[in-house]
């Protein structure tokens, strides 16, 4: 199982994607399975450590929170840009000390923060674990530190560590 079929989740998702892109037939299924096996072997050659997922059940919750937040901040940022009241809005940098160390978790956090309009990931120092963000509409610095830590980091630590 481990030597022949590394990353079973990757194999399954590649086969499903392959069948979605083409029409379902036995030939396409075999071809997709072949591509998936080669891809999984290639990935195994690149990076031997499998990311460990501790809590599967929390992933839908995380996705729900993120989609809702993206919709909300899309509306907020669009309103700020169109209203053009530059004097009232203040943007700035926020440094957040993170406890999350898992590379996979940090990568997911980067995707979440960057794809949410209004927050941009600028720098992360992995020696000290400090994340530097730029916030579009900065009212209260500690509020943002709380938000990132309780809303995302806590869930990601539950899932990945």
């Amino acid at each position: 199982m481990n030597r022949l079929l590394p990353y079973p989740l990757l194999i399954v998702s590649i086969v499903v994607m392959w069948l979605a892109l083409t029409r379902f037939s036995v030939g396409q299924l075999l071809l997709g399975a072949g591509v998936a096996l080669v891809a999984a072997q290639g990935l195994a050659a690149l990076r031997p450590s499998t990311p460990r997922l501790r809590r599967w059940d929390l992933i839908p919750k995380l996705i729900g929170i993120v989609l809702l937040d993206i919709v909300r901040s899309n509306i907020a940022v669009a309103r700020l840009i169109l209203s053009g009241k530059r004097a009232k809005r203040k943007s700035g940098f926020v440094a957040i000390p993170l406890e999350l160390r898992d590379p996979m978790g940090l990568a997911v956090l980067a995707v979440i923060i960057t794809s949410t309009p209004g927050t941009a990931w600028l720098d992360y120092s992995d020696r000290r674990g400090v994340l530097l963000l730029h916030i579009f509409d900065l009212v209260d610095e500690s509020e943002w530190v709380d938000l990132i830590k309780t809303r995302y980091e806590y869930l990601l630590m539950e899932i990945f560590e």
Binding site: I70, N74, V77, I81, F93, S115, P117, L122, H134, F136
Partner: peptide, 12 residues
Amino acid sequence: YDRLHAPTLGSS
């Protein structure tokens, strides 16, 4: 750094 936020509307 403000401009960096604007295109994320289009990409999200």
